[in-house]
Design a protein around this nucleic acid. Sequence first.
DNA 1: GATGAATGAGTTTTCATTCAT
DNA 2: GATGAATGAAAACTCATTCAT
Lengths: 188, 188, 188, 188
Amino acid sequence: MLSAALELFSEKGYHNVPMHEIAEKAEFAIGTLYKFFRNKEDLYRTLILENTDRFHEALTKALEETDDEVEKLRNYVRAKGEVFRANASVIRLYLAETQGAKFNVMVGFDADIRERYGKFLQSLALVFEAGIKKKRFKRIADPYHLSVSLVNLTNAFLFLWLEEPEHHPYPEDPDTVLNILFKGLLDQ
Amino acid sequence: MLSAALELFSEKGYHNVPMHEIAEKAEFAIGTLYKFFRNKEDLYRTLILENTDRFHEALTKALEETDDEVEKLRNYVRAKGEVFRANASVIRLYLAETQGAKFNVMVGFDADIRERYGKFLQSLALVFEAGIKKKRFKRIADPYHLSVSLVNLTNAFLFLWLEEPEHHPYPEDPDTVLNILFKGLLDQ
Amino acid sequence: MLSAALELFSEKGYHNVPMHEIAEKAEFAIGTLYKFFRNKEDLYRTLILENTDRFHEALTKALEETDDEVEKLRNYVRAKGEVFRANASVIRLYLAETQGAKFNVMVGFDADIRERYGKFLQSLALVFEAGIKKKRFKRIADPYHLSVSLVNLTNAFLFLWLEEPEHHPYPEDPDTVLNILFKGLLDQ
Amino acid sequence: MLSAALELFSEKGYHNVPMHEIAEKAEFAIGTLYKFFRNKEDLYRTLILENTDRFHEALTKALEETDDEVEKLRNYVRAKGEVFRANASVIRLYLAETQGAKFNVMVGFDADIRERYGKFLQSLALVFEAGIKKKRFKRIADPYHLSVSLVNLTNAFLFLWLEEPEHHPYPEDPDTVLNILFKGLLDQ
DNA sequence: GATGAATGAGTTTTCATTCAT
DNA sequence: GATGAATGAAAACTCATTCAT
């Protein structure tokens, strides 16, 4: 049921999918849909939260698999690719919700999602902070900014992949992404 | 009239703003709205394209004001801050359209916008390429990826600012953003 | 539901009957109307086609009940009276559609109806042709013209009846109509 | 101005022609239209009445040009062809108004037109009555019915012509039409 | 007198939600 | 518990008509 909704929302967007269509695709009666979810918004929220949680769990785990900060970041980039490659149609919804589509679907409805997102940003910031303390990283920017930057950097690669999957595959080697942070651009 | 629509769309999202509300806010009758725009979509598209063009023009100009690639990037980051600070409510729409809200508003309607966006990405990629050739930059990644990365990095800072303006001001000094690219994170 | 629409359309004309009025009269919610018919035009078309088919079937049957051409015509005139007397309010719509209201309701929408009408005209023309061959009729005019003439003649009587039912009843005796064709006006 | 309206109404039908379109075609401002006609209905009514009067005048004159009843009818059929051939686009409106499109445009608005039409039917009935008295005609039917019949017969030929001008030209020789009345169909 | 921008009531249509079966 | 027919509020859009210039 949720997966029918997911596919449709991802394809057409929340406002362009009537409940009746979800019911049909899920092979349920529309009344049954309303037995499970209070309303359309509730269905959407459940959909997003469930997936968001799954993602953040996987990503958080990726950060915890090793003690080495550099490896943590590599694991994150790798895991993000895996998670989303396996859930292609969720990405749109996820990105829409986390990337300022704030206004797109429901006003102020995303508080929960953004909170979870915020928490993840914090965990990632801690990795940068720890890395800086351990002198593995240089303090080239505020750890929170670094966290936001890495998340957005990977999102950018996901976008490229979403739009032109063959032209812009999500990199197998996490360093393709990470080098943008790791290596200095300037050639002094 | 466009500015009334802009404010409402930016605040609530396209699908949550009825035409009559725009009319009311603009202090026009609803019929008058339809004298100026064929339909709701036309109003939205006009709104977006007009601003998008203005932005890209300003940003492109920023890239052309100097021959030094590093300065070009600084100018870009600075200009982006200025342009958007002055047009706070357009940003949401702009970001929504360029950042994969692809599915949110109108399916396939954003072809024009994405084309313009794509062109800008190309110009910026050329700056990186030129910088690499001149040995000002190291080839830490594909120039197009660098371009996408910088655009997303600045977007990330814009997001932070949008959500918590006092907590996360868009940096005055462009290097706050650029150092993430310029300086290598790794402390080898 | 169709009968509510029929009555209203017949009374006020297609363009002067809002959907909500049909819904009201049919004691349904307006949404229910749209469950049954895709849109207003579809409702109208269904209404017309259903009745048109019923009529033409009855009239065609009238032509087939006997082998005698004169009796065929009598049967036709009689049947037309019966059919329409029983469906008073449909006549207006039927006549409007077949009698050059071509432009009144929907441009080019009546193709189906006119085709059916055309077919009936052909069958009737065949009766005249057969009658002429068998020497029951004189060839006073082209059979197709005779067919069109008889149809219009009976329509004329229906009009008279529609407008002033007591003053101009549709004739019980079909020869009242047919004599206009049958007997020569000229007294030579 | 009237002729612009005429053309548009005839082509698309009353309800499908916005005032604004008439104004445009007539190269007047819409306000000017309303200086001349109280409202859309008034414009239409004026259009119809003016033409109806012109027609009836011409047709009545045709009946008066000779004392011979047979010739009167021939003149009528001939004149009707001439009048309408010269005013092709009026026919639709005229026929729609006289032929029970009663309900198509305005409810009960056609009183004037139908009165004029009724008057003409009476004059024509008088011709038949006189012919019968003078033994030029046989009393094959009530004179009023004969009048209605002839009018409808000619209308039928006009319809044919309207729909397929080359296939069904309006007959040059009035007897092509009149023989349907004049000669008896039955071959006894 | 002419204009045409502005109006807003009135239409068609959609779709989230309910509730009797 | 499941169903899906029925609902009607709300949206987009049109167009006859007015009136300030």
